[in-house]
Simulated scan of single mutants.
Amino acid sequence: MFNLMHVPQLANDDKNTGLITGAIEEQMDADRQNTEDIIAAEESNTTTIINNNNENTEKITNGYDNSALNAENDKLNNSLTEYDNAEKQVMDKVNHALDDINFNQSLDNYMQPILLCSTFMQRLYDNSGGFKDVINLTLIVSIASIVIGIYRFKGGD
């Protein structure tokens, strides 16, 4: 008798359980479909953003007009080449003139003017007082500059 009373109840419970399970499965399918739609939309948006960034990068990289800058570079290079050629011509003339220096006359002919000038300079130096240090420094710098200049004119580095 117990079974007769509870069998309809069990059948009804089974039916309700089937309905609940079906509703849960339908909700899960709907949620799964929504999740797939969201993922597809995000993937489409990401692809659109990447393509847009690639297009913008292409415009920036290849769309920049640097012809004016290239023209200025060519102009500068031409000017530098002209200056190099002009300097080479001047240096060739100076080196040629330095190479042509020779002492054909006797040493006595050169010593008289040097002796006269050195005697005058020595007297000037002796009478300069505290200004001697400045004269010494100037003389050292002058001699060093002359030596460096001659070395450079002769083709030194």
Rank of each mutant, 00 (worst) to 15 (best):
D14F: 04
N85Q: 09
L98R: 00
A71G: 06
I20R: 07
N78Q: 15
N127S: 13
M121N: 09
N78S: 15
N62Q: 03
D65R: 08
E55S: 14
K75P: 01
Y125A: 01
A68I: 02
I49Q: 07
N78F: 02
K75A: 15
D29T: 12
D84L: 07
Q105R: 09
T61F: 01
P113S: 09
K154W: 03
A97T: 08
T119M: 09
Q33N: 14
G155F: 05
L107F: 02
A30S: 06
I140R: 11
F131K: 11
Q105L: 11
Q89C: 06
G129T: 02
H96F: 00
N3I: 00
G130S: 11
Y83G: 03
N95C: 01
L4M: 03
T47E: 11
K154Y: 03
I39M: 11
A68G: 02
N102M: 00
Q9H: 04
K75N: 14
D14K: 10
Y64F: 09
F153A: 15
I135L: 11
Y64V: 11
S67T: 15
G18I: 05
V134M: 07
Y125C: 00
T57V: 03
N102Q: 14
I148R: 06
N66W: 00
N52A: 14
S79E: 13
P8G: 08
R123I: 04
D31A: 15
D74Y: 02
I60E: 09
F131H: 08
M91A: 12
V94D: 02
L4Y: 05
T138M: 08
N51R: 09
E42N: 13
N136K: 12
N102K: 10
M91W: 00
L19Y: 07
L107C: 01
M111K: 13
I39V: 12
L98F: 06
F153R: 10
L69A: 15
E42R: 08
G149L: 06
E82I: 06
L4W: 04
A23F: 01
Q27E: 14
N73E: 13
I101V: 14
R152K: 15
A71K: 01
R123M: 08
G155D: 10
T47H: 11
D157H: 13
A144L: 05
L137F: 09
N45V: 05
L69M: 12
T57R: 08
V90E: 08
K15V: 03
A68N: 10
N3W: 02
N53Q: 10
I135F: 03
L19C: 07
N56I: 02
N45A: 14
F103L: 07
A86M: 02
D29K: 15
V90R: 13
F103D: 03
E26R: 11
H96V: 00
M5D: 08
Q122C: 01
Y125P: 02
N66D: 15
K88E: 05
